[in-house]
Simulated scan of single mutants.
Amino acid sequence: MQWLSSILLTLQVISSLLVIVLVLLQQGKGADMGAAFGSGSAGSVFGSAGAANFLSRATKWAAIVFFVTTGGLAWVAHHPAGSPIESGIMQGFSAPAKEAAPAGSAVPDVGGGSAVPSVPAAPSSGAAPAAAVPAAPAAPSAGDASVPSVPAAPAGKK
């Protein structure tokens, strides 16, 4: 299906350029842009009215080709060749092999094959040992001399 996308994209670029050129060649009411390219003369190959009919018909068919290729490109983009299961992001990914730590290593084995270490479980037999958890310092009382006090703001000015 990749070749179809390339062909449709090539046809769309060609038809879009053709539409641009054909629209610029047509003679408008006041623009006269077509006269700059030589299509304004009455003695052309197509005759006096033939050029206008030819240019309008060619523009119509170039626009039809442009819109058909746009629809085809949209269809190709939303209907890939393979099924979504076979063409996923992780297709062909293999997990790295888990290496065992050396015998005297201080690195614990976290298990589960995850690269993120897990949190160790809390002991299930009551409270934690006293040495493992330090005691929180007591809150100072209002009359404690070791805690400096903050001076009061002067009254009067705001």
Rank of each mutant, 00 (worst) to 15 (best):
D32E: 12
G34T: 03
G34L: 03
A36L: 15
G38K: 15
G38W: 06
S39E: 09
S39H: 13
S39Q: 09
G40L: 11
S41G: 11
A42D: 15
G43F: 10
G43E: 15
G43L: 07
S44D: 15
F46H: 14
F46S: 15
G47E: 05
S48R: 08
S48V: 14
A49H: 14
A49K: 08
G50D: 07
A51I: 06
F54T: 02
R57M: 12
R57P: 01
K60A: 14
W61V: 13
A62D: 00
I64E: 06
F66Y: 04
T69A: 06
G72V: 01
L73V: 03
L73Q: 01
V76F: 05
V76H: 03
A77Q: 07
A81L: 09
G82V: 15
S83Y: 14
P84V: 07
P84W: 03
I85S: 12
S87V: 08
S87Q: 14
G88Q: 06
I89P: 02
M90K: 14
Q91I: 07
G92A: 07
G92M: 09
G92P: 05
F93S: 11
S94T: 14
A95E: 13
K98S: 09
E99M: 08
P102M: 02
P102K: 01
G104Y: 00
G104R: 01
A106F: 13
A106Y: 10
D109C: 01
D109E: 10
G111N: 13
G112V: 02
G112N: 10
A115V: 09
A115Y: 10
V116W: 05
V116T: 12
V116L: 13
P117I: 03
S118R: 12
A121T: 14
A122Q: 13
A122P: 03
A122R: 06
P123F: 07
P123E: 06
